[in-house]
Design a protein around this nucleic acid. Sequence first.
DNA 1: TCACCCACTTGATCTCGGTCAAGGTATCTG
DNA 2: CAGATACCTTGACCGAGATCAAGTGGGTGA
Lengths: 247, 247
Amino acid sequence: MTLQIPLEHSNCSDCPIRHRAVCAHCDGDELAELEEIKYYRTFEAGQTIIWSGDQMNFVGSVVSGIASLTQTMEDGRTQMVGLLLPSDFVGRPGRESAAYDVLATTDVVMCCFRKKPFEELMARTPHIAHRLLQMTLDELDAAREWMLVLGRKTAREKIASLLSIIARRDASISKDRRAEPIVFDLPLTREAMADYLGLTLETVSRQMSALKKDGVILLEGKRHVTIPDMGRLMEEAGDDTDGGFLV
Amino acid sequence: MTLQIPLEHSNCSDCPIRHRAVCAHCDGDELAELEEIKYYRTFEAGQTIIWSGDQMNFVGSVVSGIASLTQTMEDGRTQMVGLLLPSDFVGRPGRESAAYDVLATTDVVMCCFRKKPFEELMARTPHIAHRLLQMTLDELDAAREWMLVLGRKTAREKIASLLSIIARRDASISKDRRAEPIVFDLPLTREAMADYLGLTLETVSRQMSALKKDGVILLEGKRHVTIPDMGRLMEEAGDDTDGGFLV
DNA sequence: TCACCCACTTGATCTCGGTCAAGGTATCTG
DNA sequence: CAGATACCTTGACCGAGATCAAGTGGGTGA
C-alpha cells in the first residue's frame, strides 16, 4: 500500500518525510528549512482530516495511526481509494484542493509542512522532487494492484489479499523470514475493510470466519490475527505464491 | 483516463511528449537532444507491446491508436488497469522492469525515447521532472476514480461511467459546449470494455442494449455512439451531474 | 455467391454476495 | 450492577450479474 519507511531508519528524525525526502542526501540548509515549516497535528479516530474539495494548505506524512482516502457517492456508497499507514505521504504538490476525503481510522498524528514553502523548497531541490515522483509511482502501482482485487477477485480472495498486504507491510518492518507465523493486530474495523474491498461488512465477517474455520488464519478476539502459513494465505489471495516477497 | 494533450497543440511536433514535457518552456538544446534519442514503433491490434516483468529500455507516448495496461491472474481472469489514448505517456522513469502487460487494443503508433538518455535529460531538466510528476498525479487520480467505479457501482453505472469518460475526452478535444449531442466511435470491443469494468462481455452487451432502449445513448452499428444528453448520461453514471466538466 | 469468422446479442439458469433481521460480546457510564 | 453503545456474527432470503448455450449479422476470402 502506498509508501513505507522502515521504522528503524526513523531515528534520523521523528518525522518520516525528513528521512525519505532529504536525509538520503543530507543537507543542513534543507533540514533547517524543513524544520522551520514543520508542525504536528493530531486527530481522533473517526475525525475527518481533510474534506474533498477543501483548500489544502499543507502536505505531510502520517507519524502514527491509520488514515484512509475515501470517495463517497451522493447516496452514501463509499469506497476507500487509499490506505495511509505510518510513514505514508499525504498531499499533492502543485494541486490547490483535495480530491478525496481523508479520514482518521484510528487516532492519528501527522507531521505537516506548510505547502507553499514546501513547494518552493521542492522546486529548488531536485532530489526531493525525484523522491516524490518515486513515491507517487509506488502509489500508482498499489492503486493498480488494488484495481485487480476490486474488479476480478471473489470475496474470499479479497479478504486474503487485504490480510496479506497488511501482513507483508508489518512483517517487512520487523523481519523478512518467510517460514515463521506472522502476528499482527488488524488496524481496521470490519466496515473499513468492507469499504476497502468493495464488500459489505456482513460479507467481510463471514469470510473472516470461513478463513478461520479453514485454518488459513487464527483469530484471538476480533482483531488479533496470526497467519501460520503466509504461502497458503497468498494462494487464497490468488497471487502467485511468492510474488509479494520479491517486490 | 490518464493524460491528454489537446490535439490542436500537436503542431508543436508530431510527438506529444515534446509538447507536454518540453515545449511549454521551450529550449533548443533539449529539443535537439530529445530528437536524437527518439524513434517510432508501430504495433498491430492485439499485439503485446510490453510483457509484465520485461526489461523496459524505453519510455514514450501513444501517437495514434489505443493501448491498455492489463493484469492477468494465473487462471486467466484479466483486469485492465490503465487505458492509453493518443498523447498518453508510457513508462516509469527510474524503474527497470514493466509492472503490467501493455496491449495494443487497436493498431498503435508509439513515439519512444531510449530510457537511459531520457532519464539523464530528466535529471538535468527540472521542468521535465515536474511535468512528469503532474502527469503521474493525474494518472493516480484517474486510477482512484476508477476504483470507486469497480468497487461500488452497478453494471449499468459502470457502462455509463465508461461512456462518459470516453465522451468527455473526445468532446473536450473538439469543443466543450455542453448542450449539443456528442458523437464518437467506441475504440473498445465489448470484451475490452468488460475487462475495463470488471464485468463479463455478456453483461456489457446487455447494459449497452438497455441504455439504448432507454434512450440514454443511440447506437448505429455496434460501435458508433451518439449521446443526446450528456447530463442524463452522467446521472446514470452516478456522478454529480456536472462534476466532469468542471475539472 | 457461399462458407467462414468474428464480434456481438439474447435467453435460461445458477450462484455469490447483498439485504434485512436477530443475536452476541466487550467496554463504558451512571 | 443495569443499561447503553459500538462492533461483530450468524441466519434466511433475494437479486444482480455470471455462466452456459444458441443465434445473429456483417465483413472477408475462395
